[in-house]
């Protein structure tokens, strides 16, 4: 029962090393090392686990400049079977709408020869934090989307069914979906493996398949900058959070502590927010 899993990955700047230009408020990308988006690499790992269990194949797809080959190689080193790089000037400047369009078209193109059972994405990219590309792809492919997955409870390629746990604001939700489905995953879903040597070796000289606009059946007006309605008005550097106040039980009497807490809730509006979110249920809790 071979499983074909497709994983969409993005090459991002290593935020541990990112600096922001104080004059222009934009990321200084020059000289900053790149990595595979940390959520995506866990998506690759999860795909590999399915493949190792059922047999089959993991294909990694990325849209990006030719340098994104390095990101694909990282996935090959982890054990992915094949990588496809969508690279073309026409893809450049894409927002989440245009990106999900291009990736969905690529997946469809691939599926003509190699049907897939499941598509994985990371929950979001650390350089944009939108989390929109995965759902965008699922919508265009017309398959179920399961976002913020922190565990696959069961995967049954014969019955064409998957059951996952999604992480919600509070608690977990268990969802069953038909295959093929698209999952966006959290880091907690798994621990990355330590690459086997043959995979490391293979990755060093691996050349991904390169697909340009000419290889895909696409509507050019939906690609790249042209297909991107998003306009960035302004970017700001987040102000660093101030340290919270600690009301230590050792120094404050319980009544006083409760009073202080209530005052803080009032001031920050936290209480109201919780009441709204829960439809008033929190008030009883």
């Amino acid at each position: 029962m071979d499983v074909h899993a497709i994983v969409c990955i993005k090459q991002v700047p290593d935020t541990a090393e990112v600096r922001i230009d104080p004059k222009t408020n934009t990321l200084i990308r020059e000289g900053v090392p790149t990595i595979v988006n940390p959520y995506d690499i866990h998506a690759v790992e999860e795909a590999l686990r399915l493949r190792d269990r059922f047999g089959g194949k993991v294909t990694v797809i990325s849209m990006g400049p030719p340098q994104a080959t390095e990101a694909i190689r990282k996935c090959i080193a982890l054990g992915a079977d094949e990588g496809i790089l969508l690279t073309d000037r026409a893809f450049a400047g894409a927002d989440t709408l245009a990106t999900s369009y291009a990736l969905a078209q690529a997946i469809q193109h691939l599926a003509e020869r190699e049907p897939y059972d499941i598509v994985f994405c990371g929950k979001q990219a650390i350089d944009g934090d939108t989390g929109q590309v995965g759902p965008g792809i699922a919508r265009r492919l017309g398959i179920p989307q399961l976002t913020y997955v922190l565990q696959i409870d069961s995967f049954d390629p014969a019955a064409r069914e998957v059951v996952v746990q999604r992480k919600l604001e509070r608690g977990r939700q268990i969802v069953r979906a038909k295959l093929p489905a698209l999952l966006t995953v959290l880091k907690e879903i798994n621990e990355l493996r330590y690459s086997a040597f043959p995979d490391m070796l293979r990755a060093r000289s691996y050349e991904p398949r390169i697909w340009t606009v000419a290889d895909l059946d696409v509507d050019r007006s939906q690609l790249g900058l042209k297909g991107s309605p998003t306009r960035v008005r302004k970017t700001t550097v987040p102000t660093p959070r101030q340290a919270g106040e600690i009301i230590a039980p050792a120094t404050v009497a319980p009544e006083q502590a409760a009073q202080r807490l209530l005052e803080q809730f009032e001031k920050t509006g936290v209480l109201k927010e919780i009441v709204e979110l829960t439809g008033g249920n929190a008030a009883h809790a």
Partner: peptide, 11 residues
């Protein structure tokens, strides 16, 4: 690629 990946031939 898929085939040779799992063939544990001598490197």
């Amino acid at each position: 690629p898929a085939a040779s990946r799992r063939e544990p031939g001598k490197t």
